[in-house]
Write a protein that binds this DNA or RNA. Structure first.
Lengths: 182, 182
DNA sequence: AGTGCTTATACAACGGATTGCGCAGCGCTT
DNA sequence: AAGCGCTGCGCAATCCGTTGTATAAGCACT
């Protein structure tokens, strides 16, 4: 029930279009809360009706017009109210992990190749986050404290995942050498 | 769309009742895929209709009767089919992280106390997982390989989170000393 | 005696989320 | 010239998920 609050948090720093938000949900914030563009446009509509956000229409050439949304005082008040309440428990749906848990019935090779593919994505993300963390650090942490901490979470998460992936790789390669050498 | 497959994975090892599964979803598997009991009972009903699982009725005294479900050949086949397809992207909804991202507007002290509360839970989980990993190791990894790897994921995840929490604690305590000493 | 937890299953209602479709034009590649 | 991908918005249907409620009995605590 707090996609709305994730949006309000994003709008706290800068005004943005639905499309901008969708991109942020696909990258940075997406690691913590994901949403598709349909969901976002719908929620922006509701937030607007409830006077939590307002928008100005920006005509563009070559591209479709856009609506730049910003927080209203009421939106900011709602956000502050929400921040005071304890957060609900985190929910995850990680299909790959379910596959690992059921690994006995799976083909080890295809599991390993999927693992490698995911590891590649994680390495890229890690690089992005490390660059971003450095930039925020250079700009001065005082102004970017919470962004910095969020990015740090991303970094530690990627590293932990990659470390685990390395363990899995070694374990499964040994196991497959030991049992099923074609 | 793969709560069903998570259930099939759990039933792969042993027959279980809906209630048993609900407990597993609240603990081990819940870190990777969460579901409530209503969802589970509903899905078991559907899986039964589709002949992916079967059950035997077990009368009990003092407690309500239960249905012990097990995988059918068709269920196992479906699971194998699913394991071959690449897994969909992981989805997360972590409200606390959204709160951290919006931390500028929050009360630092209440954020820190919520952090400490979550850290406590994570430490407990970590201890449980470490004990479980040790037990699986003692029993022989060959038989428990995929369970072991899943538990390892849990361990590394808890450690990474706790490390981050420590960073946050230090950062925010310094910051609040620097700026807002009551 | 009353309250609340545990075991065990299940329905109903609502709201949130995913999927599919549609419009519209620009720029790049094949 | 056709196809693809990006920017940008949006509706509709359906599916998934959460919350509330119900039943039923035993056990522990107050």
């Amino acid at each position: 029930m707090s996609l709305r609050h994730a949006i309000l948090v994003l709008l706290q720093d800068q005004e943005a279009s639905g499309y901008d938000l969708a991109r942020e949900f696909a990258n940075s914030i997406g690691l913590v809360w994901n949403a598709t563009h349909q969901q976002i446009y719908l929620e922006l509509g509701k937030l607007n009706e409830q006077h939590m956000v307002s928008y100005r229409h920006v005509p563009q050439e070559g591209k479709p017009d856009k609506k730049l949304y910003q927080l209203t005082d009421e939106g900011r008040a709602e956000l502050i109210r929400w921040l005071k309440k304890p957060a609900g428990p985190a929910r995850i749906r990680d299909a790959f992990m379910v596959k690992v848990a059921g690994g006995q019935l799976a083909d080890t090779q295809s599991l390993l190749s999927e693992l490698e593919q995911l590891a590649k994505q994680r390495r890229e993300r890690l690089a992005t986050f490390e660059a971003l963390a450095k930039r925020l650090d250079d700009e001065g942490l005082e102004d970017n404290l919470y962004n910095y901490l969020t990015v740090r979470r991303g970094i530690l998460d990627q590293r932990a995942w990659l470390q685990w992936a390395e363990e899995v790789r070694q374990t499964l390669e040994h196991a497959s050498v030991g049992s099923a050498t074609s």
